[in-house]
Design a protein around this nucleic acid. Structure first.
Length: 394
DNA sequence: ATGTCC
């Protein structure tokens, strides 16, 4: 693994610290670095960290964490409040399931949950919805519960490929399949952000204002809904495989929360940044790359207690089809170098999410290891990546 | 990211 380079690029005029973690092998877009610095100059921001998956976003970079005092920025969290990764262990024997068999069993996982799961799912949703007023119709929440969504969201069946020394404390089976779910709060987080931006724009909210309290209440509900969504996505996949599973982790990478940094109390924003203080986490590569289960080493404040949330995009979505269509037909993108299957009925998404559009996960994970942020537990390879099935209606 | 913006 390459030599680590931790770049402390510069301090801004108002003394916000800016740090980027990236070794020389990591693809790093100049525009992403610029976004990180620009965001760091916002009033009240005290520290900004770019993780090795740093890439440009809509105004604010993704793969970054920001600490502020006195005020916080809902716009910095973005629309997919609570988006995160959940990893499940299944009892299914890897050698008994080809990608083709999995694809046949899983079929389409769009639309309403299977009837067998609905009562439990809707009871949980109703429990969440008490007493918080939301800028969205509750019926939409019910219909989106248990759905993956688009963009970079997925559900993936993985096989354990390698165990590292740090695995010894965990009871990981090398012979069974795992299920990784990456999804968020669907329409809810977006509606919360939209309502907030309509009222307040992109400026920060004073920490003790009524508007801040109202936003945080909705934000916390979106976090719970996103968690609940990943749970029921996992349940519906396991149900289709006539199986069950044990949740090993469920960690959000888009949120803002009260925190302290260098003895100051304030707010920690994570925008595509995985917490390093919530136990073991998964750093997924693209659908054509490995994913790593890692243990955060210790509380590392200079990284704002954050890690890369994945490989990170290398190419903008709009560029992918143009770059790849001369060389690859859409059907070529339905299998990977691991001979894993890709279920995706959306042609544009098939190109946008191609492995070539992502950074090499080894460069990202090597940076985290070399910077002393994590130790490796296990490496997984994809067997089937589910992006989007056939439409359920029309 | 998005019951996706016209």
């Amino acid at each position: 693994m390459g030599h680590s380079m931790q770049v402390k690029v510069r301090a801004n005029a108002d003394a916000a610290e800016v740090r980027i973690f990236a070794n020389p092998d990591v693809w790093l877009e100049a525009s992403a670095v610029e976004q990180l610095h620009t965001t760091a100059t916002l009033p009240h921001i005290r520290a900004a960290v770019g993780l090795p998956d740093l890439h440009p976003g809509r105004g604010y970079p993704v793969g970054a964490a920001f600490f502020s005092t006195g005020h916080f920025y809902p716009a910095l969290v973005g629309g997919d409040i609570g988006c995160g990764m959940a990893l499940w262990q299944t009892p299914l024997k890897t050698h008994q399931y080809s990608a083709q068999k999995l694809e046949k069993r899983i079929g389409s996982q769009e639309g309403a949950l299977p009837e067998a799961l609905q009562a439990g799912a809707y009871a949980e949703l109703n429990g969440l919805l008490q007493e918080v007023s939301l800028p969205i119709d509750a019926s939409l929440l019910a219909s989106s519960l248990g759905t993956i969504g688009g963009g970079n969201h997925f559900a993936e069946v993985l096989a354990l490929d390698h165990l590292y020394e740090a695995a010894s404390a965990l009871q990981l089976s090398a012979k069974t399949l795992y299920l990784l779910v990456h999804s968020g709060s669907r329409g809810l987080g977006g509606a919360i952000l939209r309502a907030h931006v309509d009222a307040f724009g992109h400026r920060g909210l004073a920490a003790n204002s009524p508007a801040a309290a109202a936003y945080l209440q909705q934000h916390d509900l979106a976090q719970q809904f996103a968690h609940c969504n990943r749970h029921w996505i996992a349940q519906r996949f396991l149900h289709s495989l006539r199986s069950e599973g044990e949740c090993l982790l469920d960690v959000s990478h888009n949120h803002v929360l009260a925190a302290t940094y260098q003895g100051q109390s304030g707010y920690l924003h994570r925008k595509g940044a995985t917490p390093s203080d919530q136990g073991i986490v998964m750093v997924p590569g693209s659908r054509g790359d490995y994913s790593y289960l890692v243990r955060p080493v210790a509380e590392r404040q200079e990284a704002l207690c954050s890690l890369a949330h994945g490989a990170g995009r290398k190419w903008a979505r709009a560029d992918c089809e143009g770059r790849l269509s001369a060389k690859f037909h859409a059907s070529d993108l339905r299998t990977t170098r691991f001979a894993s299957s890709v279920v995706c009925n959306d042609k544009a998404l098939l190109f946008e999410e191609a492995p070539q559009a992502y950074k090499k996960v080894d460069s990202v994970v090597a940076t985290l290891v070399d910077a002393g942020l994590v130790e490796l537990i296990a490496r997984f390879k994809p067997v089937l990546t589910y992006k989007k099935g056939a439409p359920t209606c029309c």
